[in-house]
Structures are given as structure tokens and as C-alpha cells.
Amino acid sequence: MLDQIRDLYQEVVFDHNRNPRNFRVMEDANRKIEGFNPLCGDRITLYAKVIDGLIEDVSFQGSGCAISTASASLMTEIVKGQTEQEAEQLFELFHRITTGKNGDEVNLEALGKLAVLAGVRAYPARVKCATLAWHSLQSALKNDGETVSTE
């Protein structure tokens, strides 16, 4: 009966929710930020080690729903080793696709693994879950060191 929602709750999402990657405190991080979704109470602490514009390491801690946990986990996997600029561009693409309308033409290929989360655009109430980690990353890269909120 719940099969219709498999476009959002794909096996990859369950996998990352059960076993989030890079789910650890980073002792030698030079960027750290608290992300918060006041709507559902999700909290994330994002750690990054950025040297000469390169994201050498990124990790997270926190509690959230399956969508936000899987999104954070996938994000850390993908942006690790990217330049800040590459990560920024990917966020823009991800944001455009998750907040776009259903009929909009989207280039899912460019998203790579992140494409599994594209289905969230059909569930507007959950888009913030998918983008919390990304907003946190963006803030961490800007190094403004404040708590980010999705509101």
C-alpha cells in the first residue's frame, strides 16, 4: 500500500538512514556549524576541514528524519574532495531541483547519486528536510559560524 511513495523513500534513502556515512565528530575541523529545522526539530552539526578552497573532509552529527539524514549522508560522500566552488554549484542545482515544480525539466544526471532525493519535490512539506544539510554546508563554507535555520 505504501508503494506509491517509493519515489521518495527509495532503498538508497533507507540505507543511508540506517548507516549514515561520515557520521562522526571531526576533532580537527576548521569549520563547524549548527543547522536547525524549527518545523520538525531536526538538528545537525556539520563539520568540515577546508584547506586552500578544497573540502578535504566533511562529517555530521545530529538527529533527523530519514530524508534529512540520508541527504546529509549523501552530501558528505559527494562533496568530500570537491572545491568549495564545485560544492556551491552542486547545492544550487540540488536546490533548484528539489524546489522545482513537478513538470519542470530537470537534469537528474548532473546530480549523480543525489538524484534519489529529487522525488522530494512532490512533497513540499519535506523539502526543508532534504536541504537542511546543504544550507548548513553553505554556511560553513562561508564560515559565518552562526546557527542556520531553514526558516
Binding site: L2, Q4, I5, C40, G64, Y123, R126
Partner: peptide, 12 residues
């Protein structure tokens, strides 16, 4: 997470 419960129950 309760948010996942809410979205999934809404499907029903």
C-alpha cells in the same frame, strides 16, 4: 522520525 511517520501515513 515522526516526520517520516507523518508523510507515510498521509499516503494512506
Amino acid at each position: 522520525h515522526p516526520h517520516d511517520i507523518g508523510t507515510l501515513l498521509d499516503q494512506l
